[in-house]
Each structure stands twice: as structure tokens, then as C-alpha cells.
Design a protein around this nucleic acid. Sequence first.
DNA 1: ATGTGACTGGGAGTCCGTT
DNA 2: AAACGGACTCCCAGTCACA
Lengths: 110, 110
Amino acid sequence: MTDLRSAFGKRVRELRVINGMTQETLAYRAGLDRTYLSGVERGERNVSLLNIEKIATALQVSVEYIFSGERFSVTPSYQSVDLLHHTINDSIDEGRNALTFYEGSSFDQN
Amino acid sequence: MTDLRSAFGKRVRELRVINGMTQETLAYRAGLDRTYLSGVERGERNVSLLNIEKIATALQVSVEYIFSGERFSVTPSYQSVDLLHHTINDSIDEGRNALTFYEGSSFDQN
DNA sequence: ATGTGACTGGGAGTCCGTT
DNA sequence: AAACGGACTCCCAGTCACA
């Protein structure tokens, strides 16, 4: 998955054609502009959550389903934590603090 | 799933806390602003594809995974095709045309 | 460590076309 | 039916000081 915009666009086009819809029909159902949807399918648009939801609804699929498949399943390679000057102990400490913050409870520090 | 922004935000917060990260570290890894990420987790930001990808990468999960789970799996209810003045035969016809267009081939009409 | 209001530039999204 | 372009509006990405 080099560019999520292209991957998303291809997926939308796939599902649209499977459903036997034209861009115009899909755009109308999603309440979006025809030219905008065209750009989405060609991977030129940086679609945001609200429109992702609109498009999924118009395609009659769940958001989960629209992002399922090989295209989106590749876990991106990630730089080593060391490179970010962030140690494992840092993570553990921050985990404690975060949990304390959100749950209003504290760890036994002894 | 009433609002995809809230659902996405909750999911991000879940995965961040599980990984023992603070908002600040996650934001740093994603190359985003801390206050922006705060808004994302509270469902107040309409995150777009490129930032979804950044956040997923920083969380060390795939985009598919971030959208998996009950929260995103509900297929949205959809208005009847009739309400849209779009018949089943229309869909079939459009499907043929669309396939013809993209595959450069034609259906046997007989 | 996180929440929040306010701000600005740029891009999301629309509407008009032509190819 | 779809790609593409220009011009437009308006919302949001991205940031700040402060709570």
C-alpha cells in the first residue's frame, strides 16, 4: 500500500462496478459531486471520514468491509523505537501514566 | 456507528493506550500535532486518508485492522432503490455499460 | 498529560464546462 | 460514461497559548 488514496479509490471503483452503478449514480446516492467522486476513484482526493462513511453507505457496505482485503492489510514497516529515542521502559512508564490518567486509579508502585 | 469520527477516535485511543503511548508520543510518531490528535480521539476531527495512514503506521497496525471490529462492521441502513427512482433494471443496464466501458468488451445481447 | 478556543492557509468539495 | 480543467466557497489540517 504505497498510497492510501489510490488504494481507496480502486476499492471504491471495484465495489461500484460490481454493484452496476455509474459514477454519477453513486455520487448522487452519496450526496457528493460527480467530478469529486471521479477524483476519488483516481486516487487524487484525500477523502475524510465523513465522506468515507457517505461512500460506504451509498455502496451498501460497512466501513470495515471497504477497507478489507490485501490492499489495506499490510502492516506498514515502522522505524525502530530506538531511532525515535524512545526506550521500552519509556513505553512502560507512559502506559502506567496513561492508564492512571484515564481510569482515575493508580498502580501499586511497590 | 452513528458518527464515524467518534468511532475512529475511540479506536485510536484504545490502540494507543494498549501500546502504552501518550498522545504526545503517538502524535510525534505520526508527525502530527498533539492537540490535533487530541481532537481526533475525541471525535471532533474529520480525519482524511493520508492522516489515517500516518496514525495507523504510528500505531503499528494496518489500516484494515484499525477499521476492524463491531464499531465499523454495521452495514448502514440504506434507502430503498425505489425512493431514488432507480430500478433494478437500471442497475443491470448500467452494470453492463460500466463493464463494457472498463473492459473494452461487450455483452452478447442475444 | 490532556482538553479547548481561536486562528490561518490550503485543500476539500461544488458547479460550470469540454473532450 | 468518464476524465479533466477552471473558478469558486467553505471547511478543515495544523498550530498556538492557556486551562
